[in-house]
């Protein structure tokens, strides 16, 4: 490991306060600099480590930028067809009900091609945890318009901005699944700054705890950036996200289980 070390004398195991979780391996992630996927992966992995469920969890990867996420997680994983992770996860959980199952999908995967699978898994109340990374664009295929692309937002297939009469409205999937009786916990979070990362991590923990208690589908949207697709530097993209994405996709809990 090449490093520029300052305060060498402090680097002792007893002083260690933060290091990357062992539930992620050492492969360099293929994501663009500053991409929220990496942070989202890491906090899911940290919660898996903290709950000590690494040997009991199966992850379902999507098609999209995070298609290769199984290259980074030290857990058993399956790679689903585009949009079908909730169907795949449904079967895994029903056949291995004592194990934990999570799906991880982007906006194109979860809210366009996989809308039916998303809604029906949530409506049946499949006892799985679904992560929904919403960056308002198709990142992997080169920045095309997504179901969540904002009005007026430019993409390679809405080069003059999303025109609602012509291209339809952006879809608030999280609000939609919050209406369904099968979901127990529905929340929208972000991972662009330390306080939001901490909040999101708490949400991930809650979601997996609810799964442990067989409470139904837990659904976490993470509003994220796409520096390449948005054609912005990472920090600039995060600022743009705060100013433009959050008003339309407001952060916070949409549904929380009643405390017993």
């Amino acid at each position: 490991m090449a490093e520029k070390v300052v305060n060498q004398e402090m680097i002792k195991p007893e002083n260690l306060v933060y290091q990357k979780t062992k539930v992620l391996n050492d492969n360099v992630m293929h994501y663009c600099p500053g991409c929220g996927h990496g942070t989202a992966h890491r906090i899911i992995a940290e919660v898996i480590e903290e709950m000590d469920i690494q040997s009991e969890i199966i992850g379902i990867a999507p098609v999209g930028c995070s298609v290769l996420m199984y290259n980074y997680f030290n857990v058993d994983m399956q790679e689903a067809a585009h949009g079908r992770a909730p169907a795949v996860g449904t079967a895994v959980k029903r056949l291995l009900p004592e194990k934990f199952v999570f799906t991880y999908q982007g906006d194109g995967d979860l809210a366009a091609i996989g809308t039916a699978e998303t809604i029906h898994a949530c409506n049946r109340g499949e006892n799985i945890t679904m992560f929904f990374i919403n960056n308002g664009i198709y990142g992997m295929t080169g920045g095309q318009m997504a179901p969540t692309t904002l009005e007026g937002m430019k993409s390679s297939t809405s080069p003059y901005g999303r025109d609602i009469p012509m291209m339809g409205n952006p879809l608030k999937m999280t609000e939609l699944v919050a209406q369904l009786p099968g979901t127990c916990y529905v929340t929208r979070q972000a991972v662009h700054d330390p306080s939001h990362v901490r909040k999101t991590k708490k949400a991930v923990r809650k979601a997996l705890e609810y799964q442990k208690k067989n409470m139904g589908t837990s659904f976490i949207e993470i509003v994220s950036n796409c520096n390449s697709g948005w054609k912005m530097a990472p920090v600039e993209a995060n600022n743009w996200m705060v100013e433009n994405m959050f008003p339309f996709f407001p952060l916070g809990d949409l549904k929380v289980p009643e405390e017993k």
């Binding site: 079908r84 169907a87 029903r94």
Partner: peptide, 10 residues
């Protein structure tokens, strides 16, 4: 479509 993908998962 969901059925066959459930088969994949199972």
């Amino acid at each position: 479509v969901a059925s066959i993908n459930m088969l994949y998962g199972g």
